[in-house]
Nucleic acid binder design. Structure first.
Lengths: 222, 222
DNA sequence: AATTGTATGTTGTTAAAACAACAAAAAATA
DNA sequence: TATTTTTTGTTGTTTTAACAACATACAATT
């Protein structure tokens, strides 16, 4: 197990190698590999383990009976998922967790975390505080997506998403973690209609793009 | 201050009256009253205090430049809001918090909470754990709304929302906390189009409603 | 009770996005 | 390199929701 990788994750930040060793044991750590598009957790599952992405990345998706997919969040290496469901006993997942690429996942059982901690596990409080920060950030992610999908037009959604990406990258040029279909699923629109709108916007000089790299043209930006 | 009310809130559950007294002092508690539609927190604000609804209720809204409103969440008496932003230093609100009715709000400064707790404030860990549970539940609320707005049709969104309401009320008949305009804003659709769709569904015998009370007609439910 | 205001329902028109079907380009594989 | 698969872009058609404008019902206020 790569301790320096783990120590740099948000979940385990502020812990020593020795503490991490205890944590992994205490939380019954196991790892598993998944191929792209494999489903890691199914909607309806009741889970008691957090997943941490060791390599690759995963998407949080909602898939309805008609095959309509919504991507709610994208989880990269070092980040965790399913903490919400793992922390609320008997709460069934309402989303699927899907491997966006081939990936390796670390599972950590959270059953012992929420209980009043035993004296041997002094790191529990640290982890709980880290989890609180992570949960708050997940909230921001979900709110952000709500914001990006609040406009009723495709163009409005694109502008909302792309401006935010530019802002968080502190650069008018940036690369997004989605292909066209995934971006459409994230923004809740049809892919071909979105492609069409992107082309129009490029023709109008609002932005330029190739593949997943976009550049927003501001008035003072040529 | 009504201690038995506070002791029954999720945030302060598991604390004694004496502890609550310390908490209120330690977190510099203040209260303020707001009239319906008054804005409690503005998008763009940087806040360091959680709000707890003592009476009335508030909505979490996103309002764009064109006046389009989205309701992301509805907070009732005893529940808290803005904990996400309050817990992440310098993170500006991307939503407005608006009084849905006349209400009284208790503000609790969270600056001291996240720091490693002093030995005098033993309740900090308890509050942090409670906050974690609350944050996880907020995540569920946001995910749930994403789910309800993932369908591209108005009917699909209505069915998603109303079925979930029936399920959480454990009854095919239930009352929702929104009027028509608010429900439309929550589902991200036009009010009149939604009213129209509701009427159609009633004509088709799928459901009946009057005011905010709905009844879903299942095959075995007449 | 009369009046004003607010909430909800109804209808027709318009605009826009979904959808389907295909073309072109890029990436992956043999 | 050739071939297959995947991704992206394009176009036309159809469906649907937004929008506007109004009618009705309900609630609040004087």
């Amino acid at each position: 197990m790569n301790y320096s990788f783990l120590a740099n994750t948000l979940l385990l930040s502020g812990t020593t190698d020795n503490e991490i060793k205890s944590i992994l044991q205490c939380l019954q750590a196991t790892t598993k590999e998944y191929k792209k598009d494999e489903i890691i957790y199914y909607a309806g599952d009741v889970v008691d383990s957090i997943g941490m992405v060791l390599s690759g990345s995963v998407n949080i998706e909602s898939n309805d009976i008609l095959g309509n997919k919504s991507i709610l969040d994208h989880i990269e290496s070092g980040q965790i998922f399913a903490e919400t469901y793992s922390l609320i006993p008997n709460e069934a997942l309402m989303v699927d967790v899907v491997a966006a690429q081939n990936c390796e996942i670390l599972f950590l059982n959270t059953g012992k975390l929420v209980q009043v901690c035993s004296n041997t596990c002094t790191f529990h409080n640290k982890i709980v505080r880290n989890l609180l920060t992570i949960s708050a950030r997940k909230n921001l992610n979900l709110s952000r997506r709500s914001l990006h999908t609040s406009s009723k037009s495709i163009r409005g959604r694109l502008i909302s998403y792309l401006s935010q990406q530019a802002q968080s990258n502190e650069n008018y040029q940036f690369t997004i973690p989605f292909n066209r279909q995934q971006l459409a699923d994230y923004l809740g629109v049809d892919r071909s209609a979105m492609s069409n709108e992107l082309s129009k916007m490029q023709k109008e000089g609002i932005l330029t793009f190739s593949k997943n790299t976009f550049k927003i043209n501001t008035p003072a930006n040529d």
